[in-house]
Design a protein around this nucleic acid. Structure first.
Lengths: 248, 248
DNA sequence: CGACCTCTTGAGGCAACTCAACGGAGGTGG
DNA sequence: CCACCTCCGTTGAGTTGCCTCAAGAGGTCG
């Protein structure tokens, strides 16, 4: 969708005109006048990796659209053990409606840019525009599907399969050149080895070993520790255990 | 809420008058006249344990309210490995809106009674009554919270902690006598050892051993393989790893 | 240059898995 | 009534996959 197709584009807030969230994100559910109202209360900002966006048991004051970068959602146990329970990519919506507290942490995994609005503004708008709530329901259902898919990975897959599943997940969400049916993928890992371990329920060492194994088997190539090339995506998928795997 | 408080209770469908789903379930979001319309298209039935309610990759034709019993949601890998990705208790809503197919199986874990309506009826009603969609969003968000809580259990807890977490989960959802602050709980396990293993990402043998360990440590008592008594719920919770545990 | 961080690799240990045997509960049929 | 089967759960012995601990390489920053 280009700007020319927006009949009222001249009245839209400048920031929103080229914003991906309006096409594929939550704002797509809003009428132009609603968008104007929301934009008045919104602000954009960029934060460096490691920034804590929502603290555990911290009051949630704002909701945000994730415009670029990757956000990790984590939960921790009292003794320090930690688990990443979700990754969010642009243009996901960030926040937990109907609760004043969150039991999860949200932290920028990469450089992240956000478009934030006060909690009250979006909740009022949600009451007025059922389409907004509908959009939110759809995203939540999608996140639930992803969470359940990941539960299979956590509970039933081996270490190699876990790492391959993770790489496959990232390839689908990060690589801008990925088309359906495309057989190769290239991307930078948005997470450190420690983060990957927390995501997969493994240790750093095991993650490192499995990456090495996949590399020596020719399933992936790695440059500079972060840059990954997958020549044959379906081979990677086969290693992820979703189907039978012979390349481990 | 008793029947006397329903000013129009005489026009309500007979089946709905004493139905828990109207108080705490999805039907609570409906006006009396909507309830009448939906009730006309609905039907109640009971099924024995093991009945498949929604098959993998099978078209979903009906939605249901779960009136009693426990339903397990499972996902499988090609080679037979299986993982339970969710448990549903009364009065949960059963079904996946906005998708014609489900990638998960739903199976009755115990004797289960349902109140079902055709997919089309509920989807039409959802467009008319935003309150219904709102209620659905709330349940979905709750399920997402539970799924994420469980990801921590799957990824980061030891076998004992997993089993204790499971027992704690069941105690909260099953024991009809459980009050907040009550220190004891009594219930029948709704799942076989094999099911519990699939829920926890363990093997049957390991589940059995950990149950024995909790029993010999006096955390739980077990009669007839299925009936469990927990004298000290907070001690059980301590074993679940949410906080530090000294009783393993 | 040293301090620090991330990542890799190796050696050894342990928690959970695999394989195997057995006992009890429930059903069926002679 | 008992003999026999199947299903479910328990327990033991041995194995293995991942964790733990330790060392070192490469990169970045003050």
């Amino acid at each position: 969708m280009t700007i020319r197709q927006d009949v009222q584009c001249d009245v839209l807030p400048v920031l929103c005109q080229s914003c991906d969230a309006r096409c594929h994100g939550l704002c797509g559910a809003l009428e132009p006048n609603q968008l104007v109202a929301l934009a008045k209360a919104s602000s954009r900002h960029s934060v460096p990796p490691g920034t804590e966006l929502v603290g555990d048991a911290e009051a949630i004051e704002t909701y945000s659209n994730l415009l670029s970068g990757v956000v990790k959602l984590t939960k921790g146990l009292a003794d320090g053990r930690q688990q990443i329970v979700g990754l969010q990519f642009a243009p996901d919506f960030l926040g937990r409606p109907f609760k004043s507290e969150s039991e999860i942490n949200a932290e920028a995994a990469t450089e992240v840019s956000l478009c934030s609005f006060p909690k009250a503004a979006i909740e009022r708008m949600m009451r007025e525009a059922p389409a907004l709530e509908h959009r939110l329901l759809k995203q939540t259902l999608m996140e639930l599907d992803e969470a359940r898919e990941w539960m299979v990975t956590l509970g039933r897959k081996t270490a190699v399969e876990k790492v391959a599943s993770f790489l496959f997940l990232i390839a689908r969400n990060i690589d801008p050149t990925t088309d359906a049916g495309k057989e190769s993928a290239t991307f930078d890992l948005p997470l450190t080895r420690a983060d990957i371990a927390d995501f997969l329920g493994l240790t750093v060492e095991t993650v490192s070993r499995q990456l090495t194994k996949l590399r020596t088997n020719g399933v992936i190539r790695i440059n500079n520790n972060r840059h990954v090339v997958v020549d044959n995506v379906s081979r990677l998928q086969r290693c992820s255990g979703t189907w039978a795997c012979s390349d481990t």
